[in-house]
Amino acid sequence: MSSMRIPEFWLACVIKPSVFLASLLPLAWLAWGWSTDGLGANPIEATTRFLGDWALRFLLIALAVTPVRMLTAWNCLARFRRMLGLFAFAYAVLHLLSYIGLDQFFAWATIWAEIVKRTYITIGMLAVLCLIPLALTSTKGMVRRLGGKRWQKLHRLAYVAGVAGVIHFYMMVKADVREPLIYGAILTALFSIRLWNGRTRQVARPSVARKAKRA
């Protein structure tokens, strides 16, 4: 397996902006839905769910970067990891804001009671709490300040958030658990690739640590 060579210009000026714009498409779809009355009979529920779905999807996509690199040696993928992770965080925050502002209409007492009382919401909150430090330490400066090792350790929380996200989804479903189980299977597969790879060979370590040292 040889690593893919893509000219720097393409990566920086074409592919990365395209991935960025593509990551905004779900939001565009949502805006389109609201403006055309296209979100069905219960647009508020549809919005909360849609944002929750995309929070989990982006989290899985971001978590897939390293395993895919391990399998394919497409090291350039690492360049998208931070952006994808931040999109996961952004969608999770929007999902939470949709719950607070649209679904509960800022009924803070109720919201607090639900977070404490309803296990699936507590677990959703846990996922958000895991993502916050990751977003805060996503800048190059923070990587440097923490040091690569500590940074990597901290960012294992992304898997905790993923597990919490899947459990959160699984618990809110009434009867058809196929969808959360699919997400759970993907997460398990990604984690297994990492473990297996980490054990069999020491290649393709996430590049952040090295980059941080260089910087």
């Binding site: 219960n42 679904d103 809110m172």
Partner: peptide, 13 residues
């Protein structure tokens, strides 16, 4: 898993 104190009337905000 959720409160029954309030409800969303379909079509209302």
């Amino acid at each position: 898993r959720w409160s029954q104190a309030t409800e969303r009337r379909i079509g209302e905000f």
